[in-house]
Design a protein around this nucleic acid. Structure first.
Length: 273
DNA sequence: ATTGAGACCTGTCGGC
DNA sequence: TGCCGACAGGTCTCAA
């Protein structure tokens, strides 16, 4: 499910019911997801107030009144459900964690594949946490632009698509939006990543185009996810459209699928060079 | 240091 | 209908 836009939309959904509320109970139904839950997870949450729910890349970052921070990742199949206490909230398969909030909200984490992740971090240690410390720029922040992208791709011998999936290059892109951004920018996913930068790390015009495409595709996806929008599941430009006609202007190409790093890439060989 | 392959899990879908 | 393989929006670890 979740790349940056989906995580952002989850954040927007759970923030209003968690912020300013206390954890009145925390039920953990297994001892690990991708990694074990931290020691005394439940005890360290109960009674704490949620100050703010933020996001870094694909991680949800929940600031607590205890000076600790709850870090959560949805993996491939994680999701949150929000119910109201007393609404006959039944637990279903793969409900691994239940947060009961003093607001009466019940926030349930469900994750069939269990690639998700939760941890608690002390105040000072947040940016030093292993999962956060190496992350590249947030793509919707001011630090991200063609210069940053070119710098990160400088000297990289791997393909452009794989570089975009590298969270140290830009934080939050996943398999779908990497393909989408490359199509918008008209760049081949097979290109060597270093070709968008000069030897000294300065951007080629393609780096600016790609950075702009990334910003645009993510912004639009977040907008599309917002619950006030009707047209939820508008499909993608190239992702999962193998053999279909390219949708760019009057490009006559057809969408191809290739495997890169074990994952599917979709692109138009005609207009993406 | 960088890069690619494999591992972690369960569910779903298409083909036979 | 049932079985089987391929595949799924992520990230870590390991070996070359």
């Amino acid at each position: 499910m979740p790349e940056l836009p989906e995580v952002e939309s989850v954040r927007r959904r759970i923030a209003p019911v968690m912020e300013d509320a206390r954890f009145t109970d925390v039920i953990v139904r297994r001892r690990n997801l991708r990694a074990p839950f931290p020691k005394r997870f439940r005890e360290r949450l109960i009674g704490r107030t949620v100050l703010e729910v933020t996001r870094r890349a694909k991680y949800l970052v929940v600031l607590l009144s205890s000076d600790e921070t709850l870090l959560m990742h949805l993996g491939m199949s994680g999701s949150f459900r929000v119910d109201q206490e007393g609404d006959g909230t039944l637990s279903v398969a793969h409900d691994h964690v239940v947060f009961q909030m003093s607001s009466g909200a019940v926030v349930t984490f469900n994750d069939p594949r269990r690639f998700g992740f939760m941890d608690l971090v002390g105040a000072g240690g947040l940016s030093a946490h292993p999962v956060l410390s190496a992350l590249g720029p947030e793509p919707l922040s001011a630090e991200f632009d063609g210069f940053a992208l070119a710098r990160a791709c400088k000297g990289k011998r791997t393909s452009l698509k794989l570089a975009l999936l590298d969270q140290r290059v830009v934080a939050g892109l996943g398999n779908i939006y990497a393909s989408e951004a490359l199509h918008i920018a008209g760049l081949s996913p097979l290109r060597r990543a270093s070709t968008i930068a000069t030897r000294s790390g300065l951007p080629h015009p393609s780096a600016h185009r790609l950075a702009a495409a990334i910003t645009a595709v993510l912004t639009e996806a977040i907008e599309r996810q917002s619950p006030t929008r009707q047209y939820r599941s508008a499909r993608f430009r190239v992702y999962d459209r193998e053999s279909e006609r390219c949708r760019r202007g009057r490009c006559e190409g057809s969408i191809r699928r290739r495997t890169q790093g074990g994952r599917s890439t979709f692109f138009c060989p005609r207009c993406q060079r």
